[in-house]
Simulated assay, not measured.
Amino acid sequence: MPKDSHGHLFPGRISAPRSVPTSVTRPEYVGRKTPTAYAGNDIYTDEQVQRIRTSSVIAAQAISMVGENIVPGVTTDELDRIAHEFLIEHEAYPSTLGYRGYPKSLCSSLNEVICHGIPDDTVLESGDIINIDITAFHNGMHGDTNRTFLVGESSHEARNLVERTEEALRRGIKAVAPGREVNVIGRAIESYAKRFGYGVVRDFTGHGVGEAFHSGLIIPHYDSAPEHSTIMQPGMVFTIEPMLTAGDIAWDLWADDWTVTTKDKSLTAQFEHTLVVTELGAEVLTLHSGR
Rank of each mutant, 00 (worst) to 15 (best):
S5Y: 05
H8R: 15
H8D: 15
H8M: 13
G12D: 13
I14C: 03
A16L: 13
P17H: 04
S19M: 09
S19E: 12
R26D: 06
R26C: 09
E28G: 15
Y29P: 08
Y29M: 10
G31W: 10
R32N: 13
Y38T: 01
A39N: 15
G40V: 05
D42K: 14
D42E: 12
I43V: 15
V49H: 00
Q50T: 15
Q50G: 09
I52A: 05
V57W: 00
Q61A: 13
A62C: 15
A62G: 13
M65A: 10
I70L: 12
I70D: 07
G73A: 11
V74T: 06
V74I: 11
V74H: 07
D80H: 01
R81M: 06
E85K: 14
F86T: 07
F86E: 07
A92L: 01
S95N: 02
T96P: 03
L97N: 00
Y102S: 01
P103T: 03
S105H: 02
L106V: 04
E112Y: 03
G117A: 05
G117V: 01
T122Y: 14
E125N: 11
E125A: 12
G127R: 15
G140D: 04
G140E: 00
G140M: 01
G143C: 08
T145D: 06
R147V: 00
R147F: 02
T148F: 07
T148P: 02
F149Y: 15
L150V: 00
S154R: 12
S155N: 11
N160F: 14
L161F: 09
E166K: 15
A168Q: 09
G172Y: 04
I173S: 04
I173E: 01
K174Q: 10
K174T: 07
A177E: 03
P178Q: 08
G179H: 10
G179C: 11
R180T: 07
V182H: 08
R187T: 15
R187Y: 11
I189Y: 00
E190C: 01
A193G: 07
K194N: 03
R195A: 04
R195F: 05
F196Q: 09
Y198I: 07
Y198D: 07
D203P: 05
T205Q: 12
G208A: 04
V209Y: 13
H214R: 04
S215M: 06
I218V: 14
I218K: 14
I219F: 12
D223S: 12
P226K: 01
H228Q: 05
S229D: 14
T230R: 09
M232F: 01
G235Q: 01
G235E: 03
V237K: 05
V237T: 01
F238C: 04
T239W: 11
I240V: 12
P242S: 03
T245K: 10
A246K: 10
A250I: 00
W254Q: 02
A255Q: 12
T259N: 15
D264H: 11
Q270E: 08
F271D: 05
F271L: 03
V277G: 03
V277H: 02
G281R: 13
G281I: 13
E283Y: 00
S289E: 11
G290V: 08
